[in-house]
């Protein structure tokens, strides 16, 4: 349990998806123009992460990993195709469920949900999880149980959510600033994200 909580906190701060690994950058930059829509996307990403990551964990542990299905068989070269298929299928499923039971949530998330299938943060989460399964149990980054996988997904999602809402807030304020013309728009956004990443680096020594 302690290990799971430590994973959770680490994945929000020191292993933040955006600032430490640049995952999900495309939609992060494209959708962060105002706080409301970016919060919607953040929630959607968190949601899809906490659903897909445990599923992929089970898949990796009991089907793909070395000696998992049949002794002496290592199927991990299939992991790219299977992970992306699971993600695409779950996104489709989540979309249908949300559409049926919560039309208001669907209306606010609708456009983002299908796009999440190709968000690097989701696939990246699964691939990092695959790497971390192999780590020894004492390692702070190791994922050894389903609970760990879930907490890691939740933390990563919250970290992503926080990062996109912060950037959207800054960009809303920045509308009124006098930025040199060629730097306007995406140029200055990159530099702002860079400065935010610098600020987040102070968490990198965090030990819990």
């Amino acid at each position: 349990m302690e290990h799971a909580i430590s994973l959770f906190v680490r994945s929000i701060f020191s292993d933040n998806m955006i600032f430490a690994y640049f995952l999900g950058m495309c939609s992060y930059l494209a959708v962060s123009k105002n706080v409301k829509t970016s919060a919607g996307l953040g929630v959607a990403v968190t949601f899809v992460l906490i659903v897909t990551l445990p599923v992929n964990y089970l898949l990796q542990k009991y089907v793909l990993g070395p000696d998992a299905l049949v002794a002496g068989l290592d199927l991990s070269y299939l992991s790219f195709i299977l992970f992306i298929a699971v993600i695409a299928a779950i996104v489709q499923l989540v979309e249908m469920i949300v559409e049926k039971y919560s039309p208001s949530l669907y209306a606010s998330l609708g456009i983002f949900l299908p796009l999440i299938a190709v968000n690097c943060a989701i696939m990246g989460g699964s691939l990092f999880m695959q790497q971390r399964i192999g780590l020894p149990e004492v390692d702070a980054k190791a994922i050894t149980s389903l609970l760990d996988a879930f907490m890691y997904a939740l933390g990563s999602g919250i970290g992503w959510f926080m990062a996109i809402v912060c950037l959207a807030g800054i960009r809303e304020k920045m509308e009124y600033n006098d930025v040199p013309k060629p730097l306007q728009g995406l140029g200055i956004t990159f530099i702002v994200v860079g400065l935010m990443a610098l600020a987040f680096m102070c968490f990198s020594g965090l030990n819990i």
Binding site: P180, L183, G194
Partner: peptide, 19 residues
């Protein structure tokens, strides 16, 4: 070598390219 600098450099490349 830090992640943050990559972002700032790409920002500068965009700046130069647009200018």
């Amino acid at each position: 070598l830090m992640p943050a600098m990559a972002l700032i450099l790409v920002g500068c490349v965009i700046w130069a390219h647009r200018a």
